[in-house]
Simulated assay, not measured.
Amino acid sequence: MADIKIITTEDGSHSLYHEGLKETYHSFHGALQESIHVFIEKGLRFWRTKNGLPKEVDIFEVGFGTGLNALLAAKFATENEVKINFTSVEPFPVPMDTINQLNYIDQIGKEELKETFKQLHTAKWDELVEINPFFSLKKFKGKLEDFTGEKQFDIIFFDAFAPNKQSELWTEEMMQKCYQLLRTDGVFTTYSAKGQLKRDLKKVGFEVETLAGPPGKKEMVRGIVN
């Protein structure tokens, strides 16, 4: 992927810049702090607290990318002794030589996650792989529109490129698909707070919340299936 280069965001953590799309994989204000805030705190921790601290959770991610969200979810699983079954779709995997240069382990400060991060990226595509007793991973090498199924998940991490860069993933049809993938009380969380996104989420059935965004971003959106 010659059009991908590593950048350092404002919190010191790496992200990638896609020169073709002229877009970063994470907020340039801070990749690590964005992932923690949007996906772990406002998604995973919120769902688990809201539902009485269950010991197992099924997560679906749109956009595996650098694997940062999966790494943080695996860290959460081990620290809280909760089984996380993590499914992710990604049509354009990032090469390992790029992944090996990312500084997430140093930034998180937990050297024991180094092997986990490697396993997340070397895990075979389209196969269920147990990373450790608390975290399993299934990566689908394909697009969201090609993924099938209903009511399989408790949480969706919607981490596609921005609506103005990858508009086909932010349509009402795709929001309907996300709604159908979630169980009752399921949570959809994303960094975007576009008005059209909120209208589409409401139209397909979500209860929509506009929340404070991560540092450097005013707002984000969370949807709940009632």
Rank of each mutant, 00 (worst) to 15 (best):
L71E: 04
Y179L: 07
F60Y: 15
V204K: 04
P215S: 02
W125C: 05
S136G: 04
E168N: 09
I7L: 12
M96A: 12
F64D: 02
T122P: 08
A212T: 14
E127I: 06
N51G: 05
C178H: 12
V38M: 05
T66K: 07
I84W: 00
E19Y: 06
E56Y: 03
E90V: 08
V208D: 03
L120P: 06
P93R: 07
F161H: 11
I131V: 04
E23M: 09
A74S: 12
E145H: 14
F117D: 15
E173K: 15
K217R: 12
E130Y: 03
I6K: 07
D58N: 13
F206D: 01
N80E: 12
L102V: 10
T49R: 10
T66P: 11
E145P: 00
G205N: 06
T148P: 03
L181M: 15
E209G: 07
R45Y: 00
L144A: 15
F60N: 12
W47R: 05
K110E: 15
A77K: 01
H26L: 08
L120H: 02
Q152W: 08
P95V: 08
E61D: 14
K22V: 01
K5D: 13
V94A: 08
V204Y: 10
H121A: 10
F86T: 01
L71V: 12
I156N: 08
L102P: 06
G52R: 09
M174V: 04
I59Q: 06
W170M: 02
K55L: 10
L169H: 00
Y25V: 02
R199D: 07
F134N: 02
F64E: 06
S88D: 04
H18R: 15
T116M: 06
Y104M: 05
K50M: 07
G149A: 15
D146P: 09
E111H: 03
F60K: 06
F76K: 06
G195R: 07
A123F: 01
S192H: 12
K22F: 01
Q119V: 09
F117N: 14
G186P: 12
R45L: 05
T98A: 09
F76P: 06
L53C: 11
G109R: 02
L53F: 14
K218V: 03
L68E: 00
K202Q: 11
K118R: 10
F60G: 10
S13F: 00
K202R: 14
T9R: 03
L197P: 00
V57P: 00
L102N: 10
A70H: 01
F117A: 14
F92A: 09
T8C: 01
L211K: 12
H18A: 12
K141F: 02
N80P: 02
R199G: 05
F46V: 10
P215T: 07
G67Q: 10
T148N: 10
K198D: 03
I6V: 05
H29K: 10
H14D: 14
V129S: 03
T98F: 10
L169S: 00
D159S: 10
A77P: 00
G142V: 13
